[in-house]
Every structure is written in C-alpha cells, then in structure tokens.
C-alpha cells in the first residue's frame, strides 16, 4: 500500500482529516525554501512541492511570481529532489511529499529518471497539471509510479463531466483525488462550499473509497474547518505562497522567513480540528 493510502486510511480510522500545504520548491531560493519546508513538516501531513515551469498555463499570478523567484534562483527538478531528500533526512519527518508540476519539466528531465528519482527520494505522490487523460506520457507515468507504490493524483473541477470524473478516478492511483472548489485559477476566489459538497457527492457515485482533497480558495482556518467537514484532505496553496512573498519583501531570510511562514501555516492547519 502506498504512503498516501496509508495516511488517509489512518486518518479515517482516527476520524481525522489531512492538512496539505503547497509551496513552490526553491521559493524564494534554495536555502530559505528548505528552511520553510522543514518548519512546515511540523504542521502538514502532506507537503505539495511545486516544480516551477515558466510557461505554466494554470497557475495564478501569485504562483507565477513564486515560479519566477524559484527559477531565477536556479531551481530545477534535480534540485527539488535534493531539497526534499535533505529535508527528509534532517527532520526524520513522517510528512508525505507530493510533487506538483507540468509535463515539460518531467519529459526534459526524463520520465523514467523522474520515476526513479521519486522512488529513491521517497516521494509519496505526483500531480501533473497538464497530464491529459489519454496522453501516452500519463500512461507511462501511472504505470511506472504504480510499480514503485507512488501515488498519482488527478485534478477535477466543477465543470468536468461525470465521464471525465470517472476516468480521472481510474487514472488516480494510490492517491487522493484533487477537487478544485471552483473553476478558475488557484487562489483567485474564495472557496465555494456548495461546489465542494456537490463535487464530493458526484465522486462518491463512482467511488466510495478514493480519498478526496479540496483546494482552490482555502485561505483561513475557518475555511479549512468548513472544507474538512466534507473532504478527507484540505489543500492550502496560494495563501501560503503569498505569505512567502510577503516575508521575502520584508527581506526575511532562511529561519526568520521560515518562522514567519510556518506560524501562518500552523494557524491554518489548526482549522482542521485534529
């Protein structure tokens, strides 16, 4: 069983929900990002680490700016693996790491090499934003990652058809399904609870088992609490990245920046009421 499956199974058994924090790896630079992620392991059960791509077609301006900061500081796929490896070694954390990126960085790095690196570093899951359902690249990734017991997450949104949702559940292996609470870009609006309820109902028509996590517009502990009533996991991204940008503008570095960001993440995570 995959790490992510275990995590959600354990949480369900203990009637708890999973808190997922997103950051762009290497934002604003390697050292500060490492410090931030190390601190975040204290309050996140899953850390979603974004691997930057300069032509992303689905990120909000907040994430785009984070991508630029990371790329300008020299971040790339192999440095992301190195960073997570170091964080895991230095913290001995149980936190699961999920990589979120686009296909281009993966195919340039090499799909097989990517799967092997995920395995050797101990990555728990992968999300490819533009990995389309029928693409040969997605098939190779799903097969390769499944063999190593690494999860593959699919994203679905309120405008997707039932057929698409069914296919996404099928392609989502050893992992959680990522539901966006509205259509649009990450962090551009506030979470839409009515959509969340409807979407979970739609998913449950086709799968009673698959863990569902909800993201997009979850920015406050209250919103985390609201979402966690319905979802198995709650994802906070843009608001955390915004906090990094804020701290970076104040010229905070490494540990000070990490404390500044992680105290906010801690507050958010408490919303989940564990």
């Amino acid at each position: 069983m995959s790490k992510l499956n275990n995590l959600f199974k354990e949480a369900k058994k203990n009637k708890k929900k999973v808190f997922i924090g997103f950051v762009t790896s290497g934002d604003p630079n390697y050292a500060s990002s490492k410090a931030i992620i190390k601190e975040m392991t204290k309050s996140c059960q899953i850390i979603e680490a974004g691997v930057s791509f300069n032509t992303s077609t689905s990120d909000s301006p907040i994430i785009m700016e984070a991508n630029d900061r990371a790329i300008n500081s020299g971040m790339n796929m192999s440095k992301t693996f190195k960073l997570i490896k170091e964080v895991k070694r230095e913290t001995k954390t149980d936190t699961c790491f999920v990589l979120m990126t686009y296909l281009n960085p993966v195919i340039v790095y090499g799909i097989k090499k990517f799967i092997n690196s995920c395995n050797s570093v101990g990555i728990a899951g992968v999300i490819i934003v533009d990995g389309s359902l029928n693409s040969p690249e997605e098939k190779i990734l799903i097969n390769g990652l499944s063999k190593k017991n690494i999860g593959y997450t699919k994203i679905i949104s309120p405008t997707n058809s039932d057929k698409f949702i069914q296919q996404s559940i099928r392609n989502c292996k050893n992992s959680f399904l990522y539901i966006t609470s509205y259509y649009g870009l990450t962090g551009s609006k506030n979470v839409n609870i009515e959509n969340v309820k409807k979407m979970i109902k739609r998913v449950r028509k086709y799968s009673k088992e698959i863990p569902v996590s909800v993201g997009f517009g979850v920015k406050t502990p209250t919103q985390v609490k609201q979402v966690s009533r319905y979802a198995d996991g709650v994802i906070c991204g843009s608001s955390i990245v915004n906090k990094i940008a804020e701290g970076h503008k104040k010229r905070l570095k490494s540990k000070k920046l990490a404390t500044f960001v992680s105290s906010y993440v801690k507050k958010l995570s408490k919303g989940i009421g564990r």
Binding site: D130, S132, T159, S161
Partner: peptide, 26 residues
C-alpha cells in the same frame, strides 16, 4: 481524434491536448 500528427518512422507525436482538467469542458 486526439489531435496528434504522428511521424510513423520516429513515432514522434505532434499536437494533443495537454491542459489542466479545468479547460477540458471549454
């Protein structure tokens, strides 16, 4: 039908629909 032009010799595929699921219905 998925919008690929495939080079039969090299097996390279040009085209496709590599997008976020949010764009699929549009």
């Amino acid at each position: 039908k998925d919008g690929f032009w495939i080079n039969k010799k090299t097996k390279e595929r040009y085209g496709g629909q590599y997008i976020s699921p949010l764009l699929v219905p549009n």
